[in-house]
Nucleic acid binder design. Structure first.
Lengths: 357, 357
DNA sequence: CTGAAAGCGCTTACAG
DNA sequence: CTGAAAGCGCTTACAG
């Protein structure tokens, strides 16, 4: 910290308002916060002066004086061996926590198992018992999430959704990708590299418990692009429900043997590294491979040229912004939009180093 | 703003330190800020307790009590008819100003004319007279900028550079793109679409007064990619120094007539829309066009399919982060890195709507 | 319905 | 070299 000059004293604070209105600052405070117990006349007079002075409360002083604390609960999948995707949103949440903890915000993070919908139910019930002021939520299990959020609606607990949305949700807002458009973009990128009509393969690697709705939206977008532009590529699809590598390899090998003309593969989730691993061992020429998420394994194959493109939706920013939206709602009293779409970022071997995941 | 619970009273503040050290809080404050006039013994005792308690100062209280104000000067090009590129950094600066003005920061923005190096000199002298605490600077005229910053170095005025860097600069930090790598990425993207060896054209549209160094770094990166991967495309180059459209059109038409085989055009600055405009009128098949910056004109051609890709370095974030770095340095006393590279973003027709410029 | 006073965790003259 | 006191712009019991 260095020099700097002296501040000019404010004279547009509550004190000045009180002086002009001929009341005490306590009464001004009551009006400022819409508290009961102020006569209509006084209220109006004070409100006029507030407007006249274009009064902006000093947030610092407000926070310092206020003894109110808000508790936000966060419910996201725990990081597993299978994927460290959820490390990024968690990182964002922690970053937000650091940024606003001085402002009277407490954050409790709860994890569920992405392979166990019961764990989601159990954790969400636990959170309700804790009576948080607000909730940040990844609705990975759509039905369970709907049940959870409808209780929140009833109890008037605001919640923010990240990663994917719930149809007609009544919460505070959604922060995440436009999945359909994300698939649409992927199709454009695939099309960039295909000189003529070719075979394109969509590979879904997902257990049944996974959220197929998520994958479906991306796939719909992907297909829609080719349809819209009258591009007659041959779009094949392979569903793999066993997510261990040896099963994936077997299925892929079998499929590729039957379809040696596949020129591009699209994997609508983060398991694209498995396909890359397979392609590395196969002796064919280069197959254009595009998939999702800035994970260590994926970046490894990106560097080695086996994955050409990764699509990314700024997962840590989702966590960060999710908390900040709750903060803006509760502490700053800001009005929020219903949906904040994340950018759909294109990551290649040549720009991944600069990417802010 | 909603309910919330009562805060638990802190008991790790200066008061507690003072109590344990058997001194007054004024003395604690002196130690905290490395002020003179504290005996070595007391100082050590207090420092020990600070460590023991892992004392974190309450920034809110500090700001509220402190009457110190910092003034930052910003020197960037003014938005011209030719390009509204600089609207974005300015937007970022304004956003940062809003975010931190309560923390005793005042920001004065000064503009120079990107076509007039004298205006840069004049403004920079004016800024020095104003004796700001810190400076945010776009060093568009490299020699003039070096002169300016060397005076800042002498006078111990910290400065942050954005958009492009100065070799061996002694300032606080640089926030902007890695230009060489940006060109490198562009080459990769061009190569995605070229099935076989093709003619690629680099078009430089820039007046002599413009910063050729900037363009050169990008071009170097662009060429380096093909060299590194042993790709034998034929790379042509066209320099256009008259930046009005009719001149550009004439030059382009003449060149393309001689080189009808050009399959891709790379424009290393924001004037890519001029090339798009030309291509729209030409009757040839699609030429893959890639250029720079999220400008209205460019987006228009992106939408219409004449520009395929725009590369972008988050200009508004550069402005925002630039101010925030000064803030972190002066108010938070944080140690900064020398260089913060911006992401190199890839914008297409299908994701521009979600881009945070 | 309203006000006087204490306090949030710091910084800042001022006095010694 | 050190401390007592006032103050930053608010909020919060408490009393009336």
């Amino acid at each position: 910290m260095k020099k700097g000059k002296k501040k000019i004293t404010e004279n547009h604070g509550v004190k000045e308002i009180a002086r002009r209105a001929n009341v005490s600052i306590a009464t001004v405070d009551r009006v400022l916060h819409n508290r009961v117990g102020v006569s209509e006349t006084t209220k109006q007079k004070i409100n006029e002066i507030i407007k006249e002075l274009n009064y902006q409360p000093n947030i610092l002083a407000r926070r310092l004086a206020s003894r109110v604390t808000f508790t936000f609960a966060v419910l996201i999948p725990k990081v597993s061996d299978e994927t460290d995707f959820w490390a990024a949103p968690l990182y964002g949440v922690k970053k937000a926590e650091r940024a606003i903890k001085e402002y009277g915000v407490k954050i409790d993070v709860y994890f569920f198992d992405i392979n166990d919908r019961k764990s989601f139910e159990e954790r969400s019930k636990f959170i309700l018992k804790k009576k948080p002021d607000g909730i940040l939520l990844a609705p990975s299990f759509i039905n369970e999430a709907i049940q959870f959020t409808s209780i929140c609606d009833k109890r008037n607990i605001p919640y923010v959704l990240i990663d994917s949305n719930i149809p007609n949700q009544e919460g505070l807002c959604y922060i995440g990708p436009h999945l359909f458009r994300s698939g649409y973009l992927s199709a454009q990128l695939v099309n960039f590299t295909l000189a003529k009509e070719s075979e394109i393969l969509i590979v879904n690697i997902a257990k049944e418990v996974d959220d197929h709705n998520y994958l479906q939206q991306i796939e719909d977008g992907f297909r829609a692009y080719f349809k819209y532009y009258n591009l007659y590529h041959d779009i094949l699809k392979l569903e793999i429900v066993s997510t261990d590598y040896s099963s994936v390899e077997k299925e892929l090998a079998g499929f590729m043997k039957k379809h040696p003309q596949v020129r591009a593969i699209f994997v609508p989730n983060s398991r694209v590294s498995m396909v890359a691993q397979y392609l590395e061992t196969s002796t064919k020429g280069h197959v254009f491979l595009i998939g999702y998420d800035f994970l260590e394994k994926n970046i490894e194959y990106l560097k080695r040229g086996l994955i050409d493109i990764l699509i990314c939706h700024k997962p840590s920013e989702q966590g960060y912004e999710g908390i900040m939206k709750l903060y803006q709602h509760f502490i700053l009293g800001k009005t929020l939009k219903k949906i904040y779409f994340m950018p759909i970022d294109i990551i290649t071997k040549e720009n991944y180093e600069f990417y802010e995941n």
